[in-house]
Design a protein around this nucleic acid. Structure first.
Lengths: 346, 346
DNA sequence: CTGTTAGCGCCTTCAA
DNA sequence: TTGAAGGCGCTAACAG
């Protein structure tokens, strides 16, 4: 790898001049500039970003930590964040925490060592991130939380309007005539899961339906556990709900698998609404009624806020909390099937 | 951010000693080591990776460039690559080329500037990467190509057994009784697309079916274009195929959309087989018969090869070409429907 | 406008 | 076993 010195030699100028050409910070005569540019091309010179960063203590790099890139919600966020970062000349490093608190600590440390100038964080479900985040912020590294917002820690965050979104889904099911609506949540340690539960409860209350603990199914994020829980809950016909509302994608997939093994289908046996797209638009059946989160926009917006923090070094005290609206995409799974139609299928 | 110097001061030792403790390269007495470790914790010190890299010219960082992380095939590759890298103590930076040659050049340059020690590359469809890659390799930066393998350039690569996989899909359709099998490919500038086409042709030939140019539908990777092409091809009943074989996921989605707008379904009107999973296992209908690529393994293996190159600085001349086997997952879309059954549906 | 030079934070001889 | 010092490649004064 050629260095700035070699470029200078080849162009017959000093390293200072080469640096001036590269950064554009100081005017250089046309003559020399051309010579330098030629040398750069001839040598296939790429400025050593590492050395530059050491000198300027600016890496122009952001980091983003997501639980698992193979869940389609997250790559969309990353793409949005990447686009916003690139527009400001920043690069984005994406890493997975594999939903593990321990691993999250590792990658956080990795990103710090890499001297990223700011971090976008989707908190791992299995983490108690309080200290970590506090230390980061104390160290002057801005953090913006996405999707999952921690309790009690004053930190910038971008997520969906959880309560409203959950109300939207629940009210839609109510309108379609469902009355015994079960909600399947992820870990209630996550604030956004609690908020979605809250939206559900508010809608029921408003509709004059008494809360029923039997219909609140709290799960973790492990597919097998979730599926087993759903199977068990569905196996008792007496207590069975007439509709299911899932607060996230993995939960919904587990619920659908459980329904299949119980030989139940939607909407024939159960109405069904979930957060997050499970498959590719509505090419496939059953077409699931879905609360769509603007994942790309969440990433984009979070990146913008982070960059603003970085570039203005703004006051830590005014925490920004952005909530973007979700949209309800009504499909087949929430269409109420009449009793007549139901009996016909037998 | 505290520096090694501050740690040294607080521990009452020299920076050299602190460095020795951190790297473990030189023995340090228990007494001083404990003091140093305490100071590190107290100060929440994280070694500056940038400075270390400058000194050692080792970043222990790999880069991976994919066309688009929101296509589910690629995150799986990334996860595999990340896991292999982590096991060797390397970090992985993932970036998107947005399927653009220009952007690919940019991110390649970015990764070089970031001093990554090796690059995993899924070539963007719109790129003529010959020079780029040659220069990288010349500069001593190892590259391993994944999935899409360039022509003519001797470079390590890991991909699926394209020919065999395509034969597998085609033969399955033949066995199910289909005879007019159309193939929809991506850009044939991509070698793996050509190889898949080749597998298809070989299978037809072996079955004594004459090649029919009318049944080879070459597309690009833009959804709208692909869909329009499929719609047009399907609109002429006389020349219509009885089955469709798609060489990649985006193509398959476009084909299915086109079929829907032509009011055709699979398997009723057309048999259907594609490379790559389109939706979540077989929860949804139509359940598409799929050639599954071991995406995670491809990423993992590529990472291993790259790391081997880096750590052994092995001879460039012995190019490694790894082909992993695909598997055929038979589902509904390739089940031949009898004429009787077909007429029943009307 | 151009050249010279002092570090950025760290690791690694080398000497003690 | 410890400490002192040079230098990785670059930028940003500063001097010319």
């Amino acid at each position: 790898m050629p260095t700035i010195k070699e470029v200078a030699e080849r162009a017959g100028v000093s390293v200072g001049t080469v640096s001036h050409v590269i950064t554009g910070s100081v005017p250089v005569s046309d003559d020399l500039r051309v010579k330098v540019q030629t040398a750069i091309r001839d040598l296939d010179y790429h400025p050593n970003h590492v050395a530059r960063s050491l000198k300027t203590s600016r890496t122009r790099t952001l980091g983003i930590i997501v639980p698992d890139m193979t869940i389609s919600f997250f790559p969309q966020i990353i793409r949005g964040a990447e686009t916003a970062a690139r527009q400001k000349g920043y690069a984005l490093i994406a890493v997975n925490s594999t939903e593990s608190g321990e691993r999250q600590t590792e990658v956080l440390s990795l990103l710090r060592s890499q001297q990223v100038e700011g971090i976008l964080l989707v908190i791992a479900a299995g983490s108690a991130p309080t200290n970590q985040m506090a230390r980061l912020i104390e160290a002057g590294i801005p953090v913006v939380c996405l999707d999952r917002v921690p309790d009690r820690i004053p930190v910038d965050s971008v997520s969906v309007e959880d309560v409203t979104a959950a109300e939207m889904g629940t009210e839609h099911l109510l309108q379609m005539g469902y009355r015994r609506i079960a909600i399947i949540t992820g870990p209630l340690a996550l604030k956004n899961e609690r908020r979605r539960l809250q939206g559900y409860e508010q809608s029921l209350e408003r509709a004059g339906i008494a809360p029923d603990d039997d219909l609140v199914w709290q799960g973790n994020l492990r597919t097998e556990d979730l599926e087993a829980m759903c199977r068990e809950r569905l196996s008792n016909p007496a207590r069975r709900p007439d509709a299911i509302f899932c607060t996230n994608g993995p939960t919904a997939l587990a619920a659908l698998r459980a329904m299949r093994s119980c030989r139940m289908t939607t909407p024939d046996d159960l109405g069904f609404v979930t957060f997050d797209e499970l498959t590719v638009d509505d090419l496939f059946r059953p077409a699931i009624t879905t609360i769509l989160q603007p994942a790309y926009d969440i990433g984009y917006k979070a990146s913008e806020i982070l960059l603003e923090r970085i570039e203005t070094g703004k006051d830590r005290t005014d925490v920004r909390t952005v909530r973007l609206p979700a949209t309800l995409k009504v499909r087949d799974s929430s269409r109420r099937v009449s009793i007549v139609k139901l009996s016909e299928t037998y």
